[in-house]
Design a protein around this nucleic acid. Structure first.
Lengths: 222, 222
DNA sequence: GGTGCCATTATTGTTGACAATAATGTAGAC
DNA sequence: GTCTACATTATTGTCAACAATAATGGCACC
């Protein structure tokens, strides 16, 4: 059996969080993860460090890692920053588009639709986040790209923490609408569609109050 | 002698980059760093991973770490995102201010001025970047804070790469002006002052062309 | 019976040795 | 003399054992 790379393990954990199999506040013991993924603890440590930088887990010295538990304020801030960054991505993207990129983008949405129809939750999660990262990549701005990756992973966590059901909330139709406006070269319409899309995602959550039950006795008291 | 922590080493390296003692493209060998700071290679590795996430170094598999060499486009993008984020920080900050914070902020500027007068380059660099991070901290938004830290460190690198002399370019006067507007509760004026300040910093650089001489033969040819 | 203290255990943090990989230098063939 | 193939070296990647720390449970004492 091939040993998993750091990135592969990180993605697996990210997916588990997005699928709400790993809930905010849950502890991630190094030895446990090492056994599950059949790798050394050193590698698990790298993975956890990476997940921490993406805001998915928090690590306390000599205490270990737990899945991060974003508050309502965190969520609102991230959505606000994200909408600003997505606008910036579109601004840059409109000047960098060509036919090949356009095709690739529509193909991505097509894959989203297939996953949606077959109700493949894992693929749906990967692809709907991936759409926004792809836009940033095609804008060919290194920093925007890494920032978007960060924002998407944090959004996944927020979505997992505050969403009611296991249903995804980032459908292919709205993505396609953005692409259509881009294809027409209508930047303003694309930005509007993006803003609406993000607002739909945010409003699908219950950000009014912290509804999450505490994960442990400690959480209930602290 | 006390062994240095990961953060301390990272700061030392960051300072060296900001002071242009470490130039973009320079190689950072693990064993070398381990000797210099008298720590194990494992710790150096953690430091390098941290610096990579901050965009200060790039790590290639089996090749090692080199000081990042931002391009003009990178620089412009980072400044653009930064100005947007700084505006957001001020918006949040205006609602979170109290007398104690105000005092602390003016004290920070006072320290900047002292460092400026005594021409203590190291302190100047630390404090002028620290000013913006402090603002984000006082806005009490976790994500904005970590994002600002990231942006400030990337800005330091850009500044080191594109600035002509070793002179700093983020003086205390403009910082104080922002604080005065905040004290008066004039958000618009504060935002304007911040935008002007960032523009001054950016225009002090030579972003028109890549002036950096190549760091190695390879760079000159590739 | 409750409470504070100490021993035990579980978990993280650190280190040095070893393996894998890429860069460098060298010798031989043409 | 130049080029290619091979050996050497330098550097990074990986791991498993050890040390340090915090959580747990038991015991005496009040």
């Amino acid at each position: 059996m091939e040993t998993l790379t750091v990135e592969q393990i990180a993605e697996r954990i990210w997916l588990s969080i997005a699928e709400r199999r790993l809930r905010p506040g849950m502890r991630l013991k190094e030895t446990e993860l090492a056994e599950v993924f059949a790798v050394s603890r050193a590698r698990v440590r790298q993975v956890l460090a990476m997940l921490e930088r993406d805001g998915l887990v928090v690590i306390e010295s000599h205490k270990g890692a737990v899945v991060a538990k974003p508050g309502v304020e965190d969520a609102k801030d991230i959505f606000h920053v994200r909408s600003a960054v997505e606008q910036r991505v579109l601004e840059r993207l409109i000047g960098q588009l060509d036919a090949a990129k356009m095709v690739e983008m529509f193909e991505h949405v097509a894959r989203e639709r297939i996953a949606n129809n077959s109700n493949n939750q894992r693929e749906i999660i990967k692809l709907s986040g991936g759409f926004h990262v792809m836009l940033a990549e095609m804008a060919e701005a290194e920093f925007l790209c890494s920032l978007m990756r960060d924002l998407v992973s944090r959004t996944s966590l927020i979505s997992a923490a505050f969403r009611d059901s296991n249903q995804h909330n980032c459908g292919p139709d709205e993505h396609e609408l953005i692409l259509l406006h881009l294809k027409n070269g209508d930047l303003q319409a694309a930005k509007k569609a993006m803003a609406d899309h993000l607002e739909h995602v945010e409003s699908a959550l219950r950000l009014a109050q912290d509804r999450e039950p505490p994960r442990s006795l400690r959480d209930a008291l602290v």
